[in-house]
Measured scan of single mutants.
Amino acid sequence: ELKKVVALYDYMPMNANDLQLRKGDEYFILEESNLPWWRARDKNGQEGYIPSNYVTEAE
């Protein structure tokens, strides 16, 4: 089971490997080892790295 998180803030990608975050949207965490960058997937199936301090665990 993948960990689900909710974006606390918008995040615009800095490079091609990053994933855009939209405040309030849910994302699945694929990999937590790259702290403070986590690999995530959005609801459309896009994958990339996000800043872990921009998300919180979903209820």
Results as ranks from 00 to 15, higher is better:
D25E: 14
A7W: 00
Q20I: 07
A58V: 13
W37V: 14
Q46V: 15
K4V: 08
P51I: 02
E32A: 14
P36N: 08
L21M: 08
G24M: 04
Y9M: 15
A40I: 03
E31V: 06
E26W: 10
M12Q: 12
L21Q: 01
K23Y: 05
I29E: 02
N53H: 06
Q46N: 13
L19M: 06
R39G: 02
K23G: 05
Y9V: 14
N44M: 09
G48K: 01
I29G: 00
S52D: 03
Y49R: 15
Q46D: 08
K3I: 03
V5I: 04
W37I: 07
E32R: 10
N44H: 09
V6N: 04
L19D: 00
A7F: 02
P51C: 06
W37N: 15
E32W: 07
L8P: 02
M12N: 13
E1C: 03
N17A: 10
I29T: 04
K23H: 11
K43W: 06
E31C: 10
N15P: 02
V55L: 03
E57F: 11
L19K: 01
D25C: 15
R39K: 09
M14R: 15
Q20S: 13
M14E: 14
K3N: 06
W38K: 12
K23R: 09
N17L: 11
G45F: 04
K3M: 13
W37Q: 14
G48N: 00
P13V: 04
A7I: 00
K23F: 03
V6I: 11
G45I: 01
D18F: 10
E31L: 06
R22P: 01
T56Q: 15
E31Q: 15
P36F: 02
D42S: 08
K4M: 05
L8M: 12
K4D: 03
N44F: 11
R41H: 04
E57K: 10
G45S: 06
L2D: 14
R39M: 06
R41K: 10
N44D: 12
E59L: 07
L30M: 07
S33Y: 08
V55C: 07
Y11I: 03
E57H: 14
P13G: 08
W38G: 04
M14H: 15
W37D: 06
L2M: 09
S33Q: 14
P51N: 06
F28Y: 08
Y49D: 10
E26I: 12
Y9I: 08
R41D: 00
W37G: 05
E47N: 06
A40F: 00
D25I: 04
A7H: 01
L35D: 15
E1D: 06
I50V: 12
Y9R: 15
E59Y: 06
Y54E: 02
S33M: 11
N44A: 10
R22V: 15
Q46L: 12
L21I: 06
R39S: 07
Q46H: 15
I50Q: 00
Y11M: 07
L8A: 06
E32L: 05
P51W: 05
A58P: 13
N53E: 12
M12G: 05
G45R: 05
V6K: 11
N53P: 03
A58C: 09
V5L: 03
M12T: 14
E57Y: 11
E47M: 05
V5W: 05
Q46R: 12
A58G: 12
E26H: 05
Y49V: 11
G48F: 01
T56Y: 04
V55T: 06
L2N: 14
G24W: 03
G24Q: 03
A16V: 10
L30P: 02
K4G: 03
E31T: 10
V5F: 09
L21D: 00
E59I: 12
E1G: 07
L35R: 13
K23Q: 08
L35G: 12
A58N: 12
D25R: 08
W38M: 14
A7N: 00
V55D: 00
P36L: 07
P36T: 07
N15M: 11
A58K: 13
L21W: 00
Y27G: 01
E32S: 11
R41I: 05
L8I: 10
Q46S: 08
S33R: 08
K4F: 04
D25T: 08
F28V: 12
A40M: 03
E47T: 09
D42Y: 00
E31I: 06
K43I: 15
D25N: 08
L21K: 00
P36I: 03
S52K: 15
R41T: 07
E31S: 15
D42K: 02
N34F: 15
L30Y: 09
Q20E: 13
N17I: 04
I29Y: 00
G48I: 00
R41Q: 13
I29F: 01
E1T: 03
E1W: 07
G24R: 02
M14N: 15
P36Y: 05
N44R: 08
N53V: 13
E47Y: 03
K3G: 04
N15F: 04
A16T: 10
S52Y: 04
N53F: 05
K3V: 06
D18Q: 14
N34Y: 06
L2C: 04
E57L: 09
S33H: 07
N44I: 15
Y27D: 01
L30E: 06
L19Q: 01
Y27L: 09
F28W: 15
Q20K: 08
A7L: 00
V5S: 02
D25L: 09
P36A: 14
L2R: 08
P51G: 03
E26C: 07
K43M: 14
R41A: 06
F28H: 08
A7M: 01
A16M: 05
E1A: 04
Q20N: 05
M14D: 12
V5Y: 06
L2Q: 12
K43L: 11
G45H: 06
E31P: 05
I50S: 00
N44P: 02
E31R: 11
W37H: 14
Y54T: 03
L35K: 10
V5R: 03
Y9T: 15
P36E: 11
N17P: 06
E57P: 11
D42G: 06
E59C: 09
E1H: 04
R41F: 05
K43F: 06
K3W: 03
V5Q: 03
S33F: 12
L21Y: 00
N34D: 15
P36K: 14
D18I: 10
P36Q: 13
E26D: 09
W38P: 10
A16H: 11
L21C: 03
S52V: 11
E59R: 09
P13Q: 03
L8S: 06
D18G: 10
E31Y: 11
R41W: 04
M12W: 08
Y27R: 01
M12P: 12
E26T: 14
G45T: 02
Y9K: 15
W37L: 12
W37C: 14
G45N: 13
Y27H: 01
E47A: 07
L30G: 02
K23W: 02
N17Q: 15
P51D: 04
P13R: 05
N53T: 09
Y11D: 01
G45C: 05
G24C: 02
N44Y: 07
W37P: 04
L35E: 11
L30T: 10
P51M: 06
E1R: 05
L2V: 06
L19V: 03
Q46P: 02
V6T: 12
N15L: 13
A40Q: 01
D25G: 08
D42I: 00
D25Q: 12
W37M: 13
W38H: 11
P13S: 07
M14G: 14
E31F: 13
W38I: 14
Y27M: 02
M12S: 13
R39F: 08
E32K: 05
L21A: 02
E26R: 08
P13C: 03
L19I: 06
P13Y: 01
V5E: 01
L21F: 00
D25S: 08
D18C: 14
D42N: 07
Y49F: 10
I50K: 00
A40T: 02
E47W: 06
F28P: 02
G48Y: 00
W37S: 12
A7Q: 01
R39Q: 10
S52C: 10
P36C: 08
W37A: 11
K4H: 03
P13A: 07
Y11R: 15
N34K: 15
A40V: 09
T56H: 14
Y49C: 11
A58M: 10
E32Q: 14
D18P: 02
G48A: 01
N15S: 15
T56R: 14
A7K: 00
P51F: 09
L2G: 11
Y49E: 07
